[in-house]
């Protein structure tokens, strides 16, 4: 089997996991999770990150990942579980009482793989920046990755962090923005148009890569590898990754309607049929 096919199979299983997690508790955020499935697969399974499932909070001598748009926890949890961070069966506890899999990711319950709580938007980039600076102090040449939603960039703290990162040449940081063009109240264009994102990041002094199809595994791998090759050159690196919210489940695609809504029984069956089991359901 080709490496790409293996990764696509992993992503398909993650899609099933996302649908089943949110369906079971009739809550959670499937849309953005489905759209970022290839990205998470590439990071944790595609060799983009050097990471250790024997989780250690300090993460010395490994690459780190921070999820700023914490509401897409289903894709994060599935990827971590299937990468060996915790038992896959634990996905059954998503959003249930006494679970380590809280609605939004947290360190509070000690779930391996999570290094900071996120959910209140706009904070992840700053935390990633701090972790990147700690790596420099520790003379640790590994990278720090962050994922942000596009709507999330409406939070002002991001621009404080974006300004700081370039001004201080934090060049061991790769921040990916999930450009799916959707947020809760509608499209980003209708809620608050954000203009030319590439021009904005470049004006702030970042090296920007545009990843045109963030749901194409090969493109995601190529884009992230290109981003890695540009680190260490005096500029933070931004990957503007265009994705389709709800990708892989046809009735969830191209709309903000499934940002934070779970499928019913029938919709679940339809979604699962479009994503046949590959690695085995939990």
């Amino acid at each position: 089997m080709s490496k790409i096919k293996e990764l696509e199979d992993f992503a398909t299983q993650v899609r099933r996991d996302i649908l089943r997690q949110v369906h079971k508790v009739n809550s959670g955020h499937p849309g953005g999770s489905l759209g970022c499935t290839e990205f998470f697969t590439a990071l944790y399974q595609g060799g983009i990150m050097e990471h250790n499932p024997e989780f250690n909070m300090d993460g010395k001598e490994e690459d780190l990942f921070f999820l700023s748009n914490g509401h897409i926890s289903p894709v994060f949890y599935s990827t971590l579980a299937r990468s060996g961070y915790f038992p896959v069966d634990e996905l059954n506890t998503f959003r249930l009482i006494n679970s380590r899999l809280q609605g939004h990711p947290t360190t509070h319950e000690g779930l391996p793989g999570i290094r900071v709580a996120s959910g209140s938007l706009g904070q992840g980039m700053s935390v990633a920046l701090g972790a990147a600076q700690a790596k420099k102090l520790n003379k640790d040449n590994h990278l720090v990755f962050a994922l942000l939603g596009d709507g999330e960039l409406q939070e002002g703290q991001n621009w404080e962090a974006i300004m700081y990162a370039a001004g201080n040449k934090v060049d061991n940081l790769i921040a990916t923005v999930d450009l799916n063009g959707q947020q809760i109240d509608g499209s980003t264009e209708t809620v608050l148009p954000m203009g030319n994102m590439k021009a904005k990041f470049e004006a702030f002094g970042w090296d920007v890569i545009e990843l045109e199809d963030g749901n194409n595994m090969q493109q995601v791998l190529d884009g992230l590898n290109e981003a890695k090759s540009r680190t260490g050159k005096g500029k933070p690196v931004c990957v503007l990754m265009t994705t389709v919210m709800g990708n892989g489940v046809d009735f969830m695609m191209h709309t903000h309607a499934w940002h934070g809504k779970a499928p019913n029984d029938e919709q679940l069956e339809t979604g699962l049929a479009q994503n046949p089991e590959t690695l085995g359901d939990y």
Binding site: M57, D58, G59, K60, L64, F66, R115, V116, G122, Q123, G124, M125, S126, V127, A128, L129, G130, A131, A132, Q133, A134, K135, L137, N138, D140, G156, Q157, E160, A161, M163, Y164, G167, N168
Partner: peptide, 23 residues
Amino acid sequence: FFQTGIAEANMMGMAAGLTIGGK
């Protein structure tokens, strides 16, 4: 030492991140 400029929100987030790595 990290001078964050007049950007306290980013400063608090960076401080949180710096602990990851033992600072």
